[in-house]
Amino acid sequence: TETRTFDSEEEAKKAQKEAEKQGRTVTITRRDDRWEVRFD
């Protein structure tokens, strides 16, 4: 599991799309003013 933090939802969604192309499961969580993206 890898976790990355982004400043914008746009960036988080971009990372999510990339990871899903690779067949990974992605979870996006809102953390205050940041977006946390978890790759499984």
Results as ranks from 00 to 15, higher is better:
19 A>V: 03
30 R>W: 12
29 T>P: 00
14 K>H: 12
6 F>M: 02
17 K>Y: 13
23 G>P: 01
20 E>K: 06
34 R>M: 13
32 D>A: 11
19 A>M: 12
38 R>E: 07
4 R>A: 09
11 E>N: 04
35 W>Y: 05
14 K>F: 11
20 E>H: 07
7 D>H: 10
2 E>Y: 15
37 V>Q: 00
40 D>P: 05
24 R>T: 07
26 V>G: 09
24 R>K: 14
33 D>F: 04
6 F>R: 00
25 T>G: 06
22 Q>D: 12
37 V>T: 02
36 E>V: 12
15 A>W: 14
11 E>H: 04
24 R>S: 07
35 W>V: 01
9 E>R: 05
26 V>E: 01
14 K>I: 12
25 T>E: 08
10 E>Q: 08
26 V>I: 04
23 G>N: 04
1 T>G: 13
39 F>L: 08
15 A>E: 05
1 T>C: 12
15 A>G: 01
20 E>I: 09
18 E>K: 06
25 T>H: 14
31 R>M: 10
6 F>N: 01
25 T>R: 14
20 E>L: 11
14 K>T: 10
36 E>A: 03
33 D>E: 09
14 K>A: 14
9 E>S: 03
18 E>T: 05
23 G>A: 02
33 D>L: 04
35 W>H: 01
29 T>M: 09
6 F>L: 02
2 E>Q: 10
27 T>W: 07
38 R>F: 08
39 F>G: 03
13 K>F: 11
13 K>R: 13
30 R>P: 06
32 D>E: 13
29 T>A: 07
31 R>I: 15
11 E>S: 06
35 W>L: 01
30 R>G: 04
10 E>Y: 09
23 G>H: 04
33 D>A: 05
35 W>K: 00
23 G>L: 02
33 D>W: 03
33 D>Q: 08
10 E>P: 04
30 R>A: 07
10 E>F: 08
36 E>K: 01
27 T>Y: 08
27 T>C: 07
34 R>K: 15
28 I>S: 01
35 W>E: 00
5 T>A: 06
36 E>T: 05
2 E>D: 09
15 A>L: 09
28 I>H: 00
34 R>Y: 14
6 F>I: 01
38 R>T: 14
22 Q>P: 03
4 R>M: 15
37 V>E: 00
20 E>V: 08
1 T>D: 11
20 E>F: 07
20 E>Y: 06
1 T>Q: 11
35 W>G: 00
22 Q>V: 10
12 A>L: 02
24 R>A: 11
39 F>N: 03
25 T>L: 11
12 A>Y: 02
33 D>K: 05
27 T>I: 11
35 W>F: 04
32 D>G: 15
16 Q>K: 12
1 T>A: 12
23 G>T: 01
13 K>I: 14
39 F>R: 02
38 R>N: 08
34 R>P: 01
3 T>A: 08
9 E>H: 09
31 R>S: 07
3 T>E: 04
8 S>V: 03
39 F>D: 06
22 Q>M: 13
8 S>W: 02
29 T>W: 06
38 R>K: 11
29 T>N: 07
3 T>I: 15
3 T>H: 07
5 T>K: 05
37 V>F: 02
10 E>A: 11
27 T>V: 10
33 D>R: 03
9 E>W: 15
5 T>H: 09
9 E>Y: 15
27 T>H: 09
3 T>Q: 06
28 I>G: 00
32 D>K: 09
22 Q>W: 11
22 Q>G: 08
17 K>G: 06
15 A>M: 09
25 T>K: 14
11 E>W: 02
36 E>W: 05
2 E>T: 12
12 A>W: 01
40 D>Q: 11
14 K>Q: 14
6 F>Y: 14
25 T>A: 09
39 F>C: 09
12 A>I: 01
22 Q>L: 13
39 F>K: 02
31 R>F: 12
8 S>H: 04
39 F>M: 10
40 D>Y: 13
29 T>V: 14
34 R>E: 05
9 E>I: 10
11 E>Q: 07
13 K>M: 12
14 K>E: 13
34 R>L: 14
32 D>H: 11
10 E>R: 06
8 S>T: 15
14 K>P: 00
18 E>S: 05
20 E>A: 09
14 K>Y: 11
20 E>Q: 10
23 G>V: 01
4 R>L: 15
17 K>S: 11
30 R>F: 15
22 Q>A: 12
2 E>F: 15
7 D>S: 11
30 R>Q: 14
12 A>D: 00
3 T>N: 06
12 A>P: 00
40 D>T: 13
37 V>D: 00
37 V>G: 02
20 E>M: 11
36 E>G: 01
18 E>Q: 08
25 T>P: 07
18 E>I: 09
10 E>C: 05
16 Q>D: 01
11 E>F: 03
18 E>W: 10
38 R>H: 12
25 T>M: 08
20 E>P: 01
28 I>P: 01
14 K>L: 14
40 D>M: 12
34 R>W: 09
27 T>F: 07
5 T>C: 05
38 R>Q: 09
27 T>Q: 07
29 T>S: 08
19 A>R: 02
1 T>W: 15
6 F>S: 01
6 F>G: 00
30 R>N: 07
14 K>S: 10
13 K>N: 07
16 Q>I: 11
13 K>L: 15
12 A>E: 00
10 E>L: 08
24 R>Q: 13
19 A>Q: 04
13 K>T: 09
36 E>R: 01
2 E>K: 08
23 G>M: 03
23 G>K: 03
37 V>S: 01
37 V>K: 01
